[in-house]
Simulated scan of single mutants.
Amino acid sequence: MRKYLKAFGYAFEGILHGVKTERHLKFHVFSAIVVIIAGFLTGLSLIEWLIILVLIGGMLSLELVNSAVERIVDLVTTEKHPLAKQAKDLAAGAVLIYAISSALIGLFIFVPKWFI
């Protein structure tokens, strides 16, 4: 059991390190807080809350994975290598696709409640 608790501790260390050091992750955490407040003020349904929470969790998780890819690439090579650039760009692209998808889904959830 101690081994599992240590693993959770390491995971929380990673999350805290990411929030403290990663500019994009800070932005996503701030955005998540804004969306959660907006959700409370808007009165979302249970299904809408579940969707929002999955989107927020996915966004934060993907940003952490992107940061990990960047760190691994930086650890492996200090020279500008096309494959290193591609690895970083692919990870960043995944984050961008998820962020755009999340924003669109958020609009589908919130806009009808606010303006229609």
Score class of each variant (00 low, 15 high):
residue 105 I to M: 06
residue 53 L to D: 07
residue 22 E to T: 11
residue 15 I to N: 07
residue 40 F to S: 08
residue 90 L to D: 12
residue 44 L to V: 06
residue 92 A to V: 04
residue 41 L to Q: 08
residue 70 E to M: 06
residue 24 H to L: 14
residue 78 T to C: 10
residue 39 G to Q: 10
residue 97 I to C: 07
residue 8 F to A: 14
residue 17 H to Y: 01
residue 74 D to S: 13
residue 1 M to T: 07
residue 57 G to T: 01
residue 70 E to L: 05
residue 96 L to K: 11
residue 4 Y to G: 09
residue 39 G to L: 07
residue 92 A to Q: 13
residue 24 H to N: 15
residue 28 H to M: 14
residue 43 G to S: 04
residue 35 V to W: 08
residue 58 G to L: 06
residue 10 Y to Q: 14
residue 112 P to W: 00
residue 27 F to E: 12
residue 111 V to W: 07
residue 59 M to C: 04
residue 74 D to G: 05
residue 107 L to H: 05
residue 84 A to D: 05
residue 26 K to L: 03
residue 83 L to P: 00
residue 25 L to G: 01
residue 94 A to S: 09
residue 31 S to I: 12
residue 102 S to E: 05
residue 102 S to T: 11
residue 100 I to L: 12
residue 73 V to S: 02
residue 31 S to W: 14
residue 55 L to S: 01
residue 65 V to C: 11
residue 99 A to V: 03
residue 27 F to I: 14
residue 86 Q to L: 09
residue 107 L to K: 00
residue 66 N to Q: 13
residue 35 V to K: 01
residue 21 T to F: 06
residue 104 L to F: 15
residue 5 L to R: 15
residue 66 N to P: 01
residue 1 M to V: 08
residue 111 V to H: 02
residue 11 A to V: 09
residue 35 V to Q: 04
residue 61 S to A: 15
residue 60 L to N: 07
residue 70 E to P: 05
residue 100 I to V: 15
residue 7 A to W: 11
residue 112 P to A: 05
residue 13 E to T: 08
residue 81 H to R: 12
residue 73 V to A: 09
residue 86 Q to R: 07
residue 104 L to G: 06
residue 17 H to C: 00
residue 106 G to D: 00
residue 5 L to M: 14
residue 51 I to D: 07
residue 8 F to L: 15
residue 83 L to M: 05
residue 102 S to W: 03
residue 45 S to Q: 02
residue 51 I to W: 08
residue 116 I to P: 14
residue 47 I to W: 13
residue 79 E to F: 13
residue 69 V to E: 06
residue 104 L to K: 01
residue 4 Y to A: 14
residue 87 A to N: 03
residue 63 E to S: 13
residue 48 E to Q: 14
residue 16 L to M: 11
residue 90 L to Y: 09
residue 33 I to A: 12
residue 92 A to F: 13
residue 18 G to R: 01
residue 64 L to S: 10
residue 97 I to L: 13
residue 13 E to R: 06
residue 78 T to L: 12
residue 19 V to S: 02
residue 17 H to M: 03
residue 14 G to V: 00
residue 38 A to T: 07
residue 10 Y to C: 13
residue 86 Q to F: 10
residue 77 T to L: 07
residue 63 E to M: 05
residue 57 G to E: 04
residue 18 G to L: 02
residue 104 L to H: 07
residue 30 F to H: 10
residue 82 P to L: 01
residue 67 S to W: 08
residue 56 I to W: 08
residue 19 V to P: 02
residue 116 I to D: 15
residue 57 G to Q: 00
residue 54 V to G: 06
residue 11 A to M: 08
residue 95 V to C: 10
residue 70 E to S: 11
residue 1 M to G: 12
residue 64 L to G: 08
residue 3 K to M: 14
residue 2 R to S: 15
residue 91 A to V: 01
residue 95 V to R: 09
residue 116 I to M: 11
residue 75 L to H: 12
residue 96 L to I: 11
residue 108 F to H: 09
residue 98 Y to T: 00
residue 27 F to P: 02
residue 78 T to P: 09
residue 29 V to N: 03
residue 89 D to S: 14
residue 89 D to M: 12
residue 1 M to F: 00
residue 15 I to S: 07
residue 9 G to T: 12
residue 98 Y to M: 06
residue 51 I to Y: 03
residue 58 G to N: 01
residue 25 L to I: 08
residue 36 I to Q: 07
residue 79 E to A: 15
residue 67 S to H: 12
residue 19 V to G: 08
residue 51 I to T: 10
residue 91 A to H: 01
residue 15 I to R: 02
residue 73 V to K: 00
residue 73 V to L: 05
residue 21 T to S: 10
